[in-house]
Design a protein around this nucleic acid. Sequence first.
DNA 1: GTGGTCTAGACCACT
DNA 2: GTGGTCTAGACCACC
Lengths: 120, 120, 120, 120
Amino acid sequence: MNIAIDYQSRVPIYEQIVLEIEKQVALNILKPNEQIPAIRELAVNLGINPNTVKKAYDTLEQRKVIISKSTKGTFITDNVDEVKRIMVDKIIDDIKKNIQELENIGINKEDIIKKLKVSE
Amino acid sequence: MNIAIDYQSRVPIYEQIVLEIEKQVALNILKPNEQIPAIRELAVNLGINPNTVKKAYDTLEQRKVIISKSTKGTFITDNVDEVKRIMVDKIIDDIKKNIQELENIGINKEDIIKKLKVSE
Amino acid sequence: MNIAIDYQSRVPIYEQIVLEIEKQVALNILKPNEQIPAIRELAVNLGINPNTVKKAYDTLEQRKVIISKSTKGTFITDNVDEVKRIMVDKIIDDIKKNIQELENIGINKEDIIKKLKVSE
Amino acid sequence: MNIAIDYQSRVPIYEQIVLEIEKQVALNILKPNEQIPAIRELAVNLGINPNTVKKAYDTLEQRKVIISKSTKGTFITDNVDEVKRIMVDKIIDDIKKNIQELENIGINKEDIIKKLKVSE
DNA sequence: GTGGTCTAGACCACT
DNA sequence: GTGGTCTAGACCACC
């Protein structure tokens, strides 16, 4: 598994791992029921402490992205669609909020579209 | 001045104040040259430490959003347009990133527009 | 034999097997003197290690729920009533504890009965 | 805060803390918005490691029982009723399941009530 | 002083 | 070998 860590970021390492794995699930890089690296293995690969990976895995399990089967290992959920759906909804919601904010500032929809098209 | 503080956010309180005041400037809630509350006053209103408000005001002054005139008080800049411009650019950029992310997941522009229209 | 294993439970797998078999005995799904699967067979069916099944069978034999007759196989006890009695006592005890807890929270017996009847 | 830890239990220490605090909320021992001990303070009182208390507090925060305000401390939620409701629902559900199981074994409702009354 | 994060390393039960 | 728990102790930003 390929995860880039930014040690300067305000986002904690464990959260970066969480976000990256969620992203890879959404992008079909990680497939349903696929086994992911053991805690200690990933910790060694990333050069960080196993507890940090554990915290990331715990968070992912709460969010139902992965399932850990004690002595067997840790696996991507079989319900990957739900993970994608939640992620897409969140992003759509962000966009809506941002559009609303621009409108509040006094920029109408046509202007927003114009600005978006400049570099797109 | 009305500022909601989220104590659970990773964003420091002083920065939440900074962002909120910048937002209110962009929304014309705070007008050019308008006087804003004294540090101690705002600190009492928000139930936080004056040092925290001080740090927020210092940051805002560095960003040229406010101007403190020693004994007279603290005022919003007269060049509010620049503050708005920076904020609008940032939001537009956020939207672009979000759209890109959705496209990576496999959602094309028409689908995005459809999803945005549902509750808009 | 049909046994669902919860790999995320704090209850060890071997104990889950023990509890499930005891339950099936109480429910007359498993009858007195009935033969149950060989250790290896069940292990294959459940996709787990034979040692785990062995540990479950050992525990069940200590509790006199099953009897293993070396080369002949493993069988449910003929004294199924005792198994049922112990299980019923345990469940009754659980219910009593739960009722006590609800009363401590301030819910009286009539309210408990009302709540139980809603979906019963 | 008074919490008894059973070091022999299969239930982890952090979970025992979680359950005990939830219980004290349900019993009105801990009141809405009340501040609870600092992580380090409780750790010292219980003779355990601060990280263990932290894990308990994290779990409680996910369950919306407490709210931690970074440098200010940790507080019971203001919505204690919701915590109680969830807890009561869980217990009622447990009772229902137990009653169902007894009925499956072949014990009818009158017999259950009889057995419950013996020591009640 | 407070919570948040992280390291280092240990022990355990279970498989 | 795997995940789960716990200890001991450190550093950080923030207030």
